[in-house]
Amino acid sequence: MTALLRTDTANPATYLWTSPLLWMLAAGSVISHIATVVLHLPQAVGGALLASFLTLFGLLHGAATYGWRGILFFLVVCLGVSNAFENLSILTGFPFGWYHYSDALGPKLFLVPLLIGPAYFGVGYLSWTLARAILGDKDGSLAGLLSFATPAIASFIMVSWDLTIDPMASTINGSWVWHTGGSYFGVPVSNFLGWYLTVYVFFQCFALYARRRIATDTKVSGYWATSLFAYTSIIIAPILGLLFGADSISITDAAGHPWQTQDIRSVAALVGLFTTLPFWLLAVFKTQEAGLSSQPR
């Protein structure tokens, strides 16, 4: 039997350039996030940089695990499900709540900016990889309970990211607008429940697809380290936002509720320290404890 949809048949020469390129893309994601916050780049520019680096990283790293057809299936189902749910919620209020996107993030696919899909995929793939590390999935085969546990844990990791970005992106930056506001600094609780549902659906779809196939036996140096490094861009962003944010002012959400911008930044940094950082630390400790090498076995 062949590995999951392999196209390079484990050619050692392939791995000579894969690892350096993964490190470059991971570094690019971290640097772009730092530059966006510190230099106060326009939202569309900063979002495009981060989404590009993480999307390319996810495709290359995912191909090393599931083969190109496998990771392209992940990409397609992620983009399709996320865009469908986003448009559905804008039109009906389900599952996230009532909102609309402004023009700050650039061109749209239907009612959703084009940048949103790659962001789902890039951070989604990192969340998936962290969940695999935490659960001790060494080769991506999704055997037994892993085919259900991995989507469940990965979805929690994804929602923890949204907890750190949504109040700043919506209430402060106005990238999207919640029509009736919400208790979490202008964001409704339904948004986070909707996020979990949305990402769980595409994670579970991929898990059911991938579990029927044999995982790829790669020889990529830094396989786990590169993904853990790339995820640090998610951890540091709210902290940098607190340190380099503009002076605190009072702003009002769409429901007329006033908020202090510095309070929003402070809570985003605090939530990140106790959600995204612990997930990352768990993944780091588990890979070390299990003695995982630089590549899946």
Rank of each mutant, 00 (worst) to 15 (best):
L75V: 15
A51R: 02
G97M: 03
N83C: 11
V112I: 13
G70A: 06
Y99Q: 08
G80D: 03
H40A: 14
I71F: 06
G67A: 06
A48Y: 01
L105G: 04
N87E: 12
A35M: 13
V30A: 12
L56T: 06
K108I: 02
P107G: 03
F94S: 09
Y99D: 01
I90F: 01
L50K: 04
Y99F: 15
A84Y: 12
T92I: 10
G93R: 07
F85K: 00
V37R: 11
A27L: 15
L105M: 14
G28I: 12
G47R: 02
G70T: 10
L91I: 11
G67W: 06
S32W: 08
A51F: 01
L72H: 10
P95G: 06
L60R: 02
H40M: 03
T65Q: 15
S32N: 09
H61D: 14
I90A: 13
L79V: 14
L72M: 15
W98Y: 07
Y101K: 04
K108F: 00
F57K: 01
G93Q: 09
I34A: 14
L105Q: 04
G47E: 05
I31P: 04
F96M: 08
G58I: 05
V81G: 04
F96P: 01
P113T: 09
G67T: 08
A26G: 15
L109S: 07
H40L: 03
L91M: 15
L59Q: 05
R69V: 13
G46I: 08
C78F: 08
L109W: 11
L54D: 02
H40Q: 15
V77T: 15
I90R: 06
L59V: 14
V112Y: 04
A51T: 14
I34G: 02
A104P: 00
V37L: 11
A104H: 12
F96V: 02
A27F: 13
L109Y: 12
H40C: 00
L75A: 14
A84Q: 01
A26H: 07
F74A: 12
W68M: 13
G93H: 05
G67S: 10
S82M: 09
E86S: 01
V38K: 14
G80K: 06
V76Q: 10
A27W: 09
G46F: 06
T55K: 00
L79T: 12
L111V: 07
A35C: 11
T55E: 03
H100D: 10
G80A: 15
G67L: 04
I90V: 15
P113A: 07
L56C: 14
V76C: 11
A44W: 12
G67C: 08
A44Y: 07
P107L: 10
P95M: 02
L39K: 14
A44N: 09
P95D: 06
L49N: 07
G47V: 04
T92L: 04
P113H: 07
C78Q: 10
E86I: 02
G46C: 09
A64R: 08
L25D: 07
L105V: 09
V38Y: 12
G58W: 04
R69F: 14
V112G: 00
S32H: 10
S52C: 09
L88Y: 02
F85C: 13
H33F: 00
L109D: 06
Y66M: 03
Y101P: 01
L88N: 09
E86T: 09
H40P: 00
G58E: 06
G106Q: 08
S52D: 02
I34F: 11
